[in-house]
Design a protein around this nucleic acid. Structure first.
Lengths: 202, 202
DNA sequence: CTTGTTTTAGAATGATCGTTCTTTTACATC
DNA sequence: GATGTAAAAGAACGATCATTCTAAAACAAG
């Protein structure tokens, strides 16, 4: 009977995810990962086929343990613009708890460094962006039904625009220590969405 | 009398800039730079105090040779929202000429990987963001004078929001090959600015 | 405690990193 | 062409990378 591993795959992934997220895929070393995860080199290599494979697993883990809970309000049944605001507030709270500079979004951090030929990685990043866009799209469609100011094509464009703006906010969170700057941007995005959907209230 | 170098500092910087921009600071190696710039190792090290110093010089060069011309419409006297549109079209054109995936913005690419203690680098990235924000701010102030819908504080927030959205667009350009997606986002941003400034037209 | 198995810590490996050094080459001046 | 000087080419260096291997430790079962 095989002896169970002393480390759990989940804990390994969570620690590695944290390191990749904060430091970046290329800069973090296997030595860093051994130290941060507390798992031996052999332990890591017995669970994963090398660094890239571990990273891909971390991208999946990121979806499950970070995006899913944070984005849940938007993906929930009957979500509306306030749900998007809740989602953004979740991220602002995460930023505040981190103290100092933020770590941004693992996906956004990665895509600015992705080589042309990293097909599988790019695919995962795109899936994340499409997931966010789809979440926003559903909300915007639902909201638009009540007002009818936008065409379906415009809703699609606004949804992707929202995703892009959110990515921008989290990029910028690596550069500022001031949550007020991020909150202002977040509030502005919400205001923009409301005004696009419902016609300029102010 | 010292013999002049066969390579010019400008050409060296331009080639290194291209490599850093496309591949990223950490991933590009000195060997890559020697190959891409056509300048010998000794030549590079005689002009710069190592890789980081060269990179900082490239960040400055990026401002001079990329940002200044592209952003000129916005920083010009009497610039208006159409100038921002012209700026965004400049970037879309750059994307189209590149073929395939874009390279994004050197600053945006860098800030997602910057270590906590890279003070000088962070300072340059912030300066870039502040420059963009200031350019947008001037335009929005000018435009707002004609309509007066926004408070000065709101104009400041809208300016930074604009900068953040633009960064988001260029981040995303590394993930898509479809210029239409980027154009839609760019158009959406312009529409948003107009509607925030002038009250919702549609 | 002994035996068998599995994980562990960490040494070894070959590649590559940024940087330096040495040799060769190329040019200016006589 | 000969001589002196500076740049170019690339070998060399120590550090570190991802990965593999080895040997010791830790546990389960008898």
């Amino acid at each position: 009977m095989p002896r169970p591993k002393s480390h759990s795959r989940e804990n390994l992934l969570d620690s590695a995810l944290k390191a990749f997220w904060k430091i970046g895929y290329h800069v973090v070393s296997m030595g860093d990962l051994v130290r941060e995860t507390g798992v031996s080199r052999a332990g890591i290599y017995s669970d994963f086929n090398g660094k890239e494979d571990l990273f891909h697993a971390c991208l999946d883990r990121y979806q499950e343990t970070v995006v899913t809970p944070a984005f849940a309000p938007v993906e929930a049944e009957g979500a509306d613009i306030d749900s998007i605001e809740t989602y953004l507030n979740n991220l602002l709270t995460r930023f505040e708890k981190s103290g100092g500079f933020g770590v941004g979004c693992l996906v956004g951090n990665t895509l600015t460094q992705i080589p042309e030929d990293a097909v599988e990685t790019r695919q995962k990043l795109r899936a994340h962006c499409d997931r966010l866009t789809a979440g926003f799209h559903k909300v915007l469609t639902h909201e638009s039904d009540d007002h009818g100011l936008l065409t379906p094509a415009e809703i699609g464009e606004l949804a992707r625009y929202t995703m892009i703006s959110v990515q921008g906010i989290w990029s910028y969170s690596r550069l500022t220590e001031d949550v007020a700057e991020l909150r202002a941007a977040s509030d502005m995005l919400i205001r923009v969405l409301k005004s696009q959907l419902r016609g300029a209230p102010r």
